[in-house]
Amino acid sequence: MKLTASKLNQFLFFKLPSAFICGVRVKEIDETQCTVSVKHRWINQNPFNSMYFAVQAMAAELTTGALVMYQIQKSGKKISMLVANNKGNFTKKATGRISFVCKDGYLIERAIQQTIATGEGQTFWMKSIGTDEKGNQVSEMDFEWSVRLK
Rank of each mutant, 00 (worst) to 15 (best):
F53R: 06
I29C: 11
T32N: 15
D30I: 00
L16Q: 07
E109M: 08
Y106E: 11
L8I: 12
V36N: 07
G65W: 03
R41Y: 03
L16P: 06
F13G: 09
Q71D: 10
T32D: 12
A94Q: 07
A5D: 15
I79M: 09
N49M: 00
N9S: 08
I43H: 11
P17R: 04
V36W: 04
S6Y: 04
L12P: 12
K78V: 01
I72S: 11
G105S: 09
E31N: 01
I72W: 08
N44A: 09
L62C: 02
I108A: 14
A59H: 06
S50W: 02
S50K: 02
P47F: 05
V55F: 07
V24K: 05
K93Y: 00
N44R: 06
L67K: 08
E61D: 15
F20Y: 15
A54N: 05
K87V: 00
Q33H: 14
I72E: 01
K78Y: 03
L67H: 05
T35W: 09
F48W: 06
K74H: 04
I72Q: 10
F20L: 07
Y70H: 14
P47R: 09
C102V: 06
V24I: 13
K27H: 08
E28T: 08
Q33E: 11
S18W: 07
A5P: 07
L12G: 13
T64I: 12
F20V: 04
E61R: 00
F100M: 07
T35R: 14
E61L: 12
I29M: 02
R41E: 10
L67P: 01
G88Y: 02
T4D: 11
V26N: 03
V101W: 01
G96Y: 01
K93T: 00
N44C: 05
L16I: 14
Q113Y: 01
Q10N: 11
S80T: 13
Q114R: 15
S18Q: 11
C102S: 14
S99L: 04
K7A: 11
T91G: 08
K74Y: 10
G76D: 11
N46W: 00
V101E: 08
A54R: 06
E109K: 03
T91M: 06
K7E: 13
L12K: 08
S80H: 10
L82W: 14
N85P: 00
T91W: 05
L67T: 00
Q33G: 09
T32A: 11
G23R: 10
K7S: 15
T63I: 11
Q10Y: 10
F53Y: 13
L82P: 14
V101D: 01
R110N: 13
V24W: 04
N9D: 12
I112V: 13
F48G: 00
K77Q: 15
A111M: 09
T35S: 10
Y106V: 10
A57D: 06
R97P: 04
T35F: 13
H40S: 14
L12H: 14
L107W: 02
T63R: 08
T4Y: 15
V38E: 12
N85Y: 10
F90E: 02
M81R: 09
V24N: 03
Q45E: 04
V36Y: 03
I72V: 15
D30R: 01
V101M: 12
Q45Y: 03
A60V: 03
F20S: 12
